[in-house]
Design a binder for these strands. Structure first.
Lengths: 260, 260
DNA sequence: CGCGTATTTGAAAGGGCTCAAACGTTGTGG
DNA sequence: CCACAACGTTTGAGCCCTTTCAAATACGCG
């Protein structure tokens, strides 16, 4: 059913010189903090083993033994948990510069399944490379800690949405969330974006069935809050929707004044 | 309604010499890793400003400006988010040795409300004390990062429970979760514990109404899975319930082999 | 003892689910 | 380039789990 694809060798426009991809993590962390030359260098050293995965393929499966972390160099992924009854919960999405350490740093097996949503390129690094980074660049360690905390708050926000709000709010916050993350990657592309997710995926992210996500999106369209054209989503009025569902962006700004 | 209590001065058996309370964080982290003398010393240095809060009082409110972190020295707290419609989501509980940095390290305001469930004692420390810890003791920084990752996975587990399982499973996993955390604190106290939470609290933690939590607990009793006597909870067969609801303890073991 | 707060229980409503079928879309192979 | 298969989406009807609303009961505490 699912085929973990290894190193696909497509010669499309995706094919670039490897060095062009470097600096994903550096770019993300540099967004929060002015990095020194040696810090930049250390971050680039993490990005040497590159690997590509095609859309739909699984990078690591929940419960699978692994000593590797990944940095997203291009594309889009999600982390999910499987339930005994066949259900699935999508926990979060990963974009350019994200470090997928959360689910594999604290154990020798992965605590979640990592799936490529679009074709994507990842840098693989051994766990202890991160240990060395903490040792040699404690300020980066602290920054990683802060970013991890911000991501945890983002997940807390999703938990709140899933636990205590109705379908319309849940789907809306997810759309706003994805848009906010994509905006960092793609720059200021406003309120239109491609959503390469099935209704099943969306439902698994917000705790609804695909059928009900369908109805909810229809509802959002009828209210004039969202427009759809195939996989293209347009949020008609971002500010209005943000207010309506009380959405909070937790990832754009992170305090770093407490770092040494 | 809620009264933030400052420094209550009760002279019950809780009243001990201050130095007796120290080492909460040290004890917790020492559980995962053999600490050096200087690391222990550094951790104790964080625990100097002690403050007590009585049950029900609020330590920090969501949105309130703060530059402080807290280490739990005794008692029991929870972190929660408020919704515009009056609803509330409890995000996690905090016990002895827990560091409440997640919601206040990445911004200058707290991202959640921190409430004392029982009477409790906290150590207050400024955020930049943690920055210095990362600088001077990078191995502890890495360990804090790993522990934070484990806690994030625990929250992911709750999200999965709330998003994709029925009431009985949600309540059961919460009980097992609380028991697992208390067990670390109180030692091997088996399957009986006091639960100083209202049904409203339980519901806010798992995304149910208090009425339905009541019915669900009754259901658990009727099935012979749980016994109740006032606030005392007894899980009849922990292993059986663990299997039944596919619960995973994420906090007891954390990999540290990757640290420098 | 009496009051406020938490719990329990009941009846009815509703939001979201299940099941099922029809309809689009995409990609592939003849 | 069409046909078909596979997959995703939409829509409908009925049901069920959880909520809502309300009232009664139990509990703790001054």
């Amino acid at each position: 059913m699912y085929e973990p694809s290894t190193s696909s060798e497509k010669s499309s426009e995706d094919q670039q010189r490897i060095s062009d991809r470097g600096g994903a993590l550096e770019a993300k962390l540099g967004h929060y903090l002015a990095l020194t030359y040696s810090e930049r260098d250390a971050l680039r050293w993490l990005e040497r083993r590159e690997r590509t995965f095609e859309a739909g393929s699984i990078v690591i499966r929940e419960g699978e033994e692994t000593a590797l972390l990944h940095i997203v160099a291009s594309g889009w992924l999600h982390g999910s948990k499987q339930l005994p009854d066949g259900g699935r919960q999508i926990l979060r999405f990963y974009f350019l510069g994200d470090l997928t350490s959360t689910f594999s740093i604290a154990w020798n097996v992965s605590a979640a399944t990592l799936t490529a949503v679009s074709d994507c390129t990842l840098f693989e690094l051994p766990r202890d490379a991160l240990g060395r980074l903490f040792r040699d660049h404690p300020r980066l360690g602290g920054l990683l800690y802060a970013v991890s905390a911000a991501e945890q708050v983002a997940m807390a926000e999703r938990l709140t949405s899933v636990g205590r709000t109705d379908a319309l709010t849940r789907v809306s916050t997810l759309l706003l969330d994805i848009r906010a993350q994509l905006r960092v990657v793609d720059g200021e592309n406003g309120s239109v974006f491609e959503l390469p997710l099935t209704l099943q995926d969306l439902g698994d992210a917000v705790g609804l069935t695909n059928t009900h996500v369908s109805r909810t999106l229809k509802n959002l369209e009828e209210r004039g809050l969202v427009e759809r054209d195939g996989r293209i989503i347009r949020i008609v009025d971002v500010d209005e929707l943000t207010r309506l569902v009380d959405y909070h962006d937790r990832l754009t700004h992170v305090a770093t004044d407490w770092l040494p």
